[in-house]
Simulated assay, not measured.
Amino acid sequence: MDVRAMLEDDVATLGGAPKTSMKDFVVQKITTFIATGILKVGDPLPGERELASALSVSRETVRGAILILSTHGVLSVAQGMRTVVASVDVGELAVQAARYRDIAAYNLDDVHEARLLIEARVARAAAVKIEPSTLDYLRNSIAAQEAACDDPVRFLICDREFHTAIYRSSGNAVLADVAADLYSYLLGHRKRVVSQPGTIAASIADHRMVLAGLETRDPDAASAAFATHETRIYTTTKLLFS
């Protein structure tokens, strides 16, 4: 499966909706970022170029999606100003928004244990099945993450796309969906965590280790790198609430 097909499948599988245009794909991505708390009312969106890079689509596609969301009152667009989130009432536009809200009710320790188990399985499968085009996508994603070191929202958008691309590469749609759901846990609070100095750089270093395991087709290395990364996420999130 090529990268574009994989991204469209992410929307279709997670949302249970038929595959549509790439513009609709970006609409659902942005509303998912809102539903999971990455973006909140008043938050500015990354620029068109940055958002296009994070999602591997054209600027024209991003522009069209923003226009759709502005007509729904979700985004506010003003000449010469950054596009900002105007409403979190995304209705049916969001991908499984209710499911993300349900995930937020879980205990942090339980989610950590579940992510360790599921992501280990997903990483091992991805190391065997991942395609060269997806590896290229992940390399480009890391480059986009590095360009977002001073922008927590933009980094988290890139971060989610990096993770879900790997989940999809496992070849198991059910595990990929569960992993993506658990990834969304307390994602709104992660923005505060990644705003702390050095946190984004540490996550990118973890991502490079994950990518290295996938590039060498080493299930043990990929699984271990995922475990290290998830434990870092768990630890920093727990400190936030201590």
Rank of each mutant, 00 (worst) to 15 (best):
M22H: 03
S195F: 09
L186I: 02
T236E: 15
I118P: 10
G198R: 13
C149R: 13
S70Q: 14
L214R: 06
Y167T: 00
L45M: 12
L67W: 12
D2F: 04
S203M: 15
A17F: 09
I204Y: 08
G64W: 01
R99F: 07
A225P: 12
A173C: 09
P152G: 09
A104V: 05
L240H: 05
K191W: 09
D89G: 09
A222N: 07
D151S: 14
E146Q: 14
D43V: 06
S21W: 02
S169V: 02
V84H: 13
K23G: 05
T36G: 06
A65E: 00
S141Y: 02
F226K: 04
A17I: 10
L175S: 04
Q196Y: 10
E48S: 11
Y183N: 10
H229C: 11
F162N: 00
P44D: 11
S76E: 15
R82T: 09
A104Q: 14
R59T: 11
T61H: 01
D206E: 15
E8A: 00
K19R: 10
A205F: 14
A176F: 00
D136E: 12
T31G: 00
S21A: 02
T32Y: 00
I68T: 08
L67P: 08
P44G: 09
L240M: 14
P152T: 03
L240S: 02
Y137S: 04
R208F: 08
V174M: 11
T32Q: 03
F25G: 01
R4M: 13
Y167E: 02
G188R: 04
V111M: 08
